[in-house]
Simulated assay, not measured.
Amino acid sequence: MIELKNIHKSYASRDKVVEALAGVSLDIAQGEIFGIIGRSGAGKSTLIRMLNLLERPTSGSVLLHGQDITKISEAALRTLRHKIGMVFQHFNLLTSRTVLQNVAFPLRLAGMDKQARTERALALLELVGLQDHAYKYPRQLSGGQQQRVGIARALANEPELLLCDEATSALDPETTQSILNLVLDINRRFGITVVLITHSMDVIRSVCDRVAIIDNGRIAESGEVVEVFLHPQHATTLSLLSESGVDADGWKELIEGVPGRIVRLTYRGHSTARPLLSQASRDLDVNLSILQGQSAKSRIRPMGSWCWLWMPILRAMSHWRHFFGIIRSITRY
């Protein structure tokens, strides 16, 4: 659906040129939830704003359904943006208008008559669970409720693409999860492609199909969320995972000077719930110590992310081959 080809974006200041994006290439499939994660200043907000050309690239192409939208007219771009909804970090609601009027505002700009836009806005408020708050003002709502209004407004013109720019970073954890569940429901119900940026790996794990890690204006790595969590390749990815509780080095001081062998086991899918380690221990007649590990759920399926094990030195290489044979047989889908 979306393809970014060698995107560069530079900003000129008085004494230097700052390169916010440096040759970014990505593809986003129709109907998926795609996450973009990075630290402050990494370029993620600039990148997501390329998708509706709120920011224009210095060079490179932005393709939507195969069409390079950097080359279309301003009139065609305004029409295109009706099919791209955007949800903002700080809600950006019109404080002098009611919740209903906020949701109906894009429809008014699109020229829809008052009765039709009111009916559409009320239906969207029901979708996001705010039908009883239609005639309140934003100041009368909680942060989570205001973001639900923002989501309803973004859906007003029946978009095929929903952009979420740090949509949960101003919310508490419980409210964040409720908003993420709503985004998941919208994606499943309507097949809308969702692109979200965040600084939280937990957000990525909860809702995304695929993820790109951006660092200093470049894509450090990308792929399916499960693969990136299980087999991180870049230092930035490891650091972000560590901040969410996945510390790949935390076990080292536990086994310093202790003889034995360390095994890193990763597993996913329904094998997460199977008694893998107890079976291996029984078959090998050896005790296993779990030094560190984490199990989690990735979007809609279980994901046993990783586990560090300590094992005494086995008596023969055949035991190692048998151990890894057990692992392979149990961890298949």
Rank of each mutant, 00 (worst) to 15 (best):
K5H: 08
I7Y: 02
A12F: 06
R14L: 08
E19Y: 02
D27M: 00
I36K: 06
G41W: 02
T46V: 13
R49K: 12
S59G: 05
S59N: 07
S59D: 03
G60C: 00
L63S: 00
D68S: 09
I69Y: 01
L77K: 06
L80P: 00
R81T: 02
H82G: 05
I84A: 06
V87I: 15
F91E: 04
F91S: 04
L93W: 01
S96L: 05
T98Q: 04
V99K: 01
P106Q: 08
R117N: 07
E119W: 03
A121F: 03
A121P: 05
L122M: 15
L130A: 12
Y135W: 02
G143P: 05
Q146N: 11
Q147W: 07
A152R: 07
E158Y: 07
E158M: 11
S169Q: 09
L171D: 13
P173A: 04
E174M: 09
E174Y: 08
T175Y: 02
L184I: 13
D185Q: 15
I186M: 11
N187E: 13
R188G: 12
R188I: 11
S200M: 14
I204F: 08
S206R: 15
R210W: 03
D215P: 00
D215S: 05
I219C: 08
V226G: 01
H234W: 01
H234V: 00
T236G: 00
T237E: 08
T237Q: 04
L238E: 12
A248W: 12
I255K: 01
V258P: 00
G260M: 13
R261A: 03
V263Q: 01
L265N: 01
H270D: 09
S271I: 03
S271Y: 02
S271N: 01
T272E: 13
A280E: 00
L284T: 02
L288R: 04
G293M: 15
Q294Y: 14
S295G: 15
A296K: 09
S298P: 00
R299I: 10
W310Q: 09
F324N: 06
R328D: 12
Y333V: 15
